[in-house]
C-alpha cells in the first residue's frame, strides 16, 4: 500500500509489525523448547522456557502501550485501524501461547519423576503438527496471505482429532493402572495445552483475514469436539 503523507505514522506501524514478528518468533521458540524438554526429559531446558516467557509478557505489554498511543494520537481508520486492532489482539494471543508453552514446560518436572510412557510419542506428534500450523499462521499473518491463513484455520481440526485420540488413550491407561494417573494427567494437560495453542493459531488466521478483507472469517470452522468423543464411548 502507498505510504502515509506523515511518514512517522508509517514508521510506527512498521515498528508494530516488526514487534509482532519478533514475538511470534519467541513464542515459536518457547513451544519448540517446551516440546524438546518433554521429549528429552530435560529439566534445565524446561526452566529456560519458563524464564524466557517473561520477555514475551513484557513485549506484549509494550506493544499494547504503543498501540493505545497510536489509537489516541493518530486516530487511525480503515486498514490502519484494522492493522492496529489486529496487532493488539495477536500480541495478546502470542502472549497466551507463550503461557501455554510455559505450562507444558512446567509439566516436565513431574513427568521426569516417573517412567517414560509410550503415549508421549503421540503427544510429540501432536506437538509437531501444532508447531507447523503455528509457524504457517505466523507466516500468513506477516505476509498478509489469506489463503494460507484459511488453510491453517481449516487444518486445526487435525489437532483436535489428535487430541481426542490421545484423550482416549490416556483415559484407558488410567483405568487399567491407577498408579499412572498422576503421570497421565500431566500428559493430558500437555495435550490440552497443545489443543489450545491450535485454537489460538486459528484465531491468528481470523485476524489475518480481518486485516486484509475487513471482514470476519465465518464461524463454520470444522471442529473436533473432545466431549462428544468421550460421551460416544
Amino acid at each position: 500500500m502507498k505510504e502515509h503523507i506523515v511518514s512517522s505514522f508509517d514508521e510506527e506501524l512498521q515498528k508494530i509489525t516488526a514487534r509482532i514478528s519478533e514475538m511470534g518468533g519467541l513464542a515459536e521458540e518457547e513451544l519448540s523448547m517446551a516440546l524438546e524438554a518433554v521429549r528429552l526429559r530435560d529439566g534445565a531446558l524446561a526452566r529456560k522456557v519458563i524464564e524466557s516467557d517473561d520477555r514475551l509478557d513484557m513485549m506484549d505489554a509494550r506493544l499494547e502501550h504503543d498501540a493505545i498511543q497510536m489509537l489516541a494520537l493518530r486516530q487511525p481508520v480503515a486498514s490502519d485501524l484494522r492493522e492496529i486492532v489486529a496487532a493488539l489482539k495477536v500480541s495478546s494471543t502470542l502472549e497466551r501461547i507463550g503461557d501455554l508453552a510455559k505450562n507444558i514446560a512446567k509439566r516436565t518436572q513431574v513427568l521426569n519423576e516417573g517412567q517414560p510412557l509410550r503415549v508421549t510419542g503421540s503427544i510429540l506428534r501432536m506437538g509437531k503438527l501444532t508447531q507447523t500450523l503455528f509457524a504457517e499462521v505466523l507466516d500468513a499473518y506477516t505476509s498478509r496471505n489469506t489463503s494460507m491463513a484459511v488453510s491453517v484455520w481449516k487444518r486445526d481440526v487435525e489437532v483436535d482429532e489428535m487430541y481426542n485420540s490421545i484423550f482416549r488413550e490416556l483415559t484407558t491407561y488410567m483405568m487399567e493402572d491407577p498408579r499412572v494417573i498422576s503421570l497421565c494427567s500431566q500428559l493430558l494437560f500437555v495435550a490440552k495445552n497443545l489443543e489450545r495453542i491450535g485454537d489460538h493459531a486459528t484465531f491468528i488466521s481470523e485476524m489475518t483475514y480481518y486485516v486484509v478483507e475487513g471482514e470476519q472469517l465465518g464461524d463454520d470452522r470444522p471442529k473436533g469436539d473432545p466431549l462428544a468423543a468421550f460421551i460416544e464411548d
Binding site: K2, E3, H4, D80, E215
Partner: peptide, 20 residues
C-alpha cells in the same frame, strides 16, 4: 463502513492520509 472498511482504494488512501 467507510471508516473501517471502505470498498474503494482511493477512499482508503484519502481517509488514512495517503493522498499524494
Amino acid at each position: 463502513k467507510i471508516f473501517t472498511n471502505p470498498d474503494h482504494e482511493k477512499t482508503q488512501a484519502y481517509i488514512t492520509g495517503r493522498f499524494g
